[in-house]
């Protein structure tokens, strides 16, 4: 299974809406007991500005602008706490107008050999199709989308596959980025409560879906 070669898993929750970035600072989170006091004290704050706030804890990266809220982590033990944090923030700031939420599963795999690494490109987009114009064509980026979704939600599921842009354990790295996107509300902005319910109910589905997509792709590369 491809998950045996998984080296880095970056999960981010990205929300589009109208935010006041300066509210959600480390000490505000600690004051609400959503993170530990010590985590707030040792937070690595890069910028606190009315347009943008960015800081990180040991396990969490936070970036908030006026219309985009992003929490991410590369540490799997903290994925559930990350979800809890998003739910809690928007349960407190329940009047925040939100328009969409995306769960992004960015996974980096160390492929054990050159052949299978090459096959990622060759099987998913047969390179023989390009051999008339290129001597040695390689796939640089493949993006597949399903929109509208096939479940009850508005939005899309998108998958992007590209050679790894991070140095991994083995030289043949592949990144698979699954973006599980939900539009919330209609033309008007929706309250945060809808997003909180959606995140609670779709969390397991989103994790499993990203795994399913990855394994399906691998089954074509490595039958």
């Amino acid at each position: 299974m491809l998950k045996n070669y998984l080296q880095i898993y970056n999960l981010s929750i990205v929300i589009i809406g109208d935010f006041n970035p300066v509210i959600i600072q480390p000490f505000w989170l600690a004051h609400k007991k959503l993170i530990r006091e010590q985590e707030a004290q040792t937070a690595n704050v890069e910028i606190i500005h009315q347009e943008v706030v960015r800081y990180s804890l040991d396990w969490l990266n936070v970036e908030i602008t006026k219309d985009k809220f992003t929490l991410s982590s590369k540490q799997e033990p903290f994925f559930e706490p990350l979800k809890d944090l998003v739910i809690s923030i928007f349960s407190i700031l329940s009047e925040t107008p939100l328009r969409a939420i995306g769960l992004n599963h960015l996974k980096y795999f160390s492929i054990p050999d050159k052949t299978r690494h090459y096959q990622f490109g060759n099987v998913l987009a047969p390179l023989s199709n390009f051999k008339d114009s290129f001597e040695d064509p390689r796939l640089l980026n493949l993006e597949i989308i399903e929109q509208p979704r096939k479940d009850i939600f508005n939005g899309s599921i998108r998958t992007r596959i590209y050679p790894s842009d991070l140095k991994l354990q083995l030289p043949f790295g592949v990144a698979i980025d699954v973006n599980d996107h939900y539009d919330i509300g209609s033309e008007k902005n929706s309250s945060a409560n809808e997003m909180v319910n959606l995140l609670t109910n779709q969390w397991d589905f989103s994790l499993k879906k990203s795994e399913e997509i990855v394994e399906n792709i691998w089954s074509k590369i490595n039958p």
Binding site: I87, S91, T200, D204
Partner: peptide, 11 residues
């Protein structure tokens, strides 16, 4: 109802 409301945010 109180217990359910508390638990409803977690699976």
């Amino acid at each position: 109802g109180l217990d359910y409301a508390k638990l409803s945010r977690e699976p």
